[in-house]
Design a protein around this nucleic acid. Structure first.
Lengths: 345, 345
DNA sequence: ATGAAAGCGCTAACAG
DNA sequence: CTGTTAGCGCTTTCAT
């Protein structure tokens, strides 16, 4: 009753069945145009009948290409980055599939208390063991030791995130224009009649944070609105956001908040609830990331086009791995604003 | 100035450098006990100097084991499942790493409007092409066509999720005792003095949903509390949860809600906000999944031990792929209750 | 304890 | 257009 799990068919099996040589079968798969139509048909029929699928390992060994792309899941990813990571991974898997690639997840390894994570942890082995063809690097917000390190090792990779201050960088990258997103958010609040629009951002040192703040500043300048006393820089937690919002409300009476993250925006919502003020009607609030939290709480938020990011990353990957390496380049995509109750009067 | 990217060292390179045969180097890596200490040391030194890492493709071809485990990311994952997926994937990657496995993500493929997704979409090719050694199957909540299908194909896999009604199932699985989690949640609300505790669940047809509901029912029975008029079954959205909660509050005056998901619990919070009632102080609310949303909104929630689930899954995987296949078995883990403001008076 | 030979399944290069 | 030859880097016999 037990149908013995026969070993999968090989090229040789197909060749024999179709009455051709192994090479011809190989061509039928990788270069069908080279075959005469009738031969091709015969081979394809044999493939069908034997339910043949090429052995990846053998192909990989021969062609030195695994069609695998490595993606490192950070050691206990930063909360903020985490909020959108899920969507990004989905998008990347989908985009890769269409290009014939699979995503290989790996971990940076556990980081001991008080130790800095090895920025290249895990990359090296995967690369040298020829387990992956290339990497997608996402955590460029840490500064960019990994892009530099990978470049030194001549590892093929594409980055989600600009090479901010590394002018020597010469790898392909895709990023989202955070400043433009925040600017649109600020414009939106202005259009709702707000003039005292506060910025709730992160502590200095994050290029991403500085970029987003710039969008607020630009918009305020455009409308000749004062920004003095209207900003705070805190760590990316709900509590920090709540406290900072409360202080700002007490000291300089903003009527709206633009935040560097949904997390901070939720903090603002908490502060408003504590004082019995209604988001939207009383005080406008906009977050960043369009996380599930924003969707569920009715929080207006800047949404990164992660699906598009993924498609561009995969396109860059293909170009990178194709024979004639074209010049590296960067792509900057525009986010969109998801307007919900928290910013509408 | 360009340091030519020399091809990685091979076994032969190491052998030559160490003055031994290739085979001895192979043994040094896979079976060090076979070597004389001094030979071993010499080989290891050569490995070090040449920065040698075994070529995965060659090893894979030879041993027929890729050390890759496939995980399918569902086509536009159900919202609920999604909320905890991120944490699970992290946990799985981490657990796999320690066992020398990597996670290969693949997509079920896009599902056309109105079409049912192919439950085995993507699995087959990966398996026959020897790209992965095994699978982790997560979406058993769909019923379990994939476990049945995979079993038929004799594909090695372990499941996160019980084989509910498939008594013939003989694969290893790990699951979380949802009923126990909900029971604990209900007990907690009872300890807070609540007697009219409502259940807000999903529409029938989901074994997971029925299981969770059973926990509520059991707890209510234990305390001889009536459940009549105290339950609603809706689809898993915030709006549906809000409406159902409002109706229940109007018709049968519950003082607390236990919900099948955080999504529904958020709906309850919305309903309370609309009537000016305070979660915790006025009406107790407990969700399920301990998602970011719960953490950020101060929602008490049942938390699945996903890290532990991952560890058990990987252990099962190792046993499955090891020579002497031990009998399959299941593991049922206990969730814990994360108590926050929404359930405390 | 070490070495020699064979071959996993495939494709690149060349020959016919 | 099709077939032959060779070899990717490794591990598994089987000798020594």
């Amino acid at each position: 009753m037990v149908d013995t799990p026969r070993p999968p068919a090989t090229l040789a099996d197909v060749a024999e069945r179709a009455g051709v040589s192994r090479q011809t079968v190989s061509n039928a798969i990788n270069n069908p145009a080279l075959l005469r139509p009738d031969t091709l048909a015969r081979v394809q029929e044999a493939i069908e009948q034997l339910d043949y699928t090429p052995n990846q390992a053998a192909r990989h060994l021969r062609t030195r290409s695994s069609h695998l792309v490595g993606l490192r899941l950070g050691p206990a990813q930063e909360f903020t980055a985490n909020m959108a990571m899920d969507r990004f991974v989905h998008a990347l898997v989908e985009a890769s599939r269409e290009a014939g690639y699979h995503i290989l997840l790996f971990s940076g390894g556990r980081v001991a208390e008080g130790e800095l994570p090895d920025p290249l942890g895990g990359y090296d082995d995967l690369l040298r063991s020829t387990a992956v063809d290339a990497f997608v690097v996402t955590d460029t917000y840490l500064g960019n030791p990994q892009t530099v390190g990978l470049a030194q090792r001549r590892a093929p990779f594409v980055a989600f995130g600009r090479p901010w201050d590394d002018t020597a960088a010469s790898h392909p990258w895709v990023d989202v224009d955070g400043a433009a997103g925040v600017e649109a958010a600020t414009e939106h609040l202005r259009a709702q009649g707000h003039e005292r629009i506060a910025w709730l951002g992160w502590q200095p040192g994050s290029r991403i944070g500085e970029d987003r703040r710039a969008g607020w500043h630009r918009s305020m300048a455009t409308h000749a609105l004062s920004t003095t006393g209207l900003e705070a820089a805190v760590s990316d937690t709900v509590d920090a956001g709540r406290e900072a919002a409360a202080t700002l409300l007490d000291t300089s009476g903003p009527t709206a908040f633009v935040c560097a993250s949904d997390t901070l925006a939720v903090g603002v919502l908490h502060a408003l609830a504590q004082r019995g003020q209604k988001p939207g009607a009383d005080v406008g609030v906009v977050g960043f990331d369009d996380s599930q939290v924003a969707q569920v709480m009715g929080l207006t938020s800047v949404r990164q086009p992660l699906e598009e990011v993924a498609v561009h990353l995969v396109a860059a990957l293909r170009a990178l791995l194709a024979p004639g390496r074209p010049a590296s380049d960067g792509v900057l995509l525009q986010p969109s604003l998801r307007i919900r109750a928290s910013s509408v009067r």
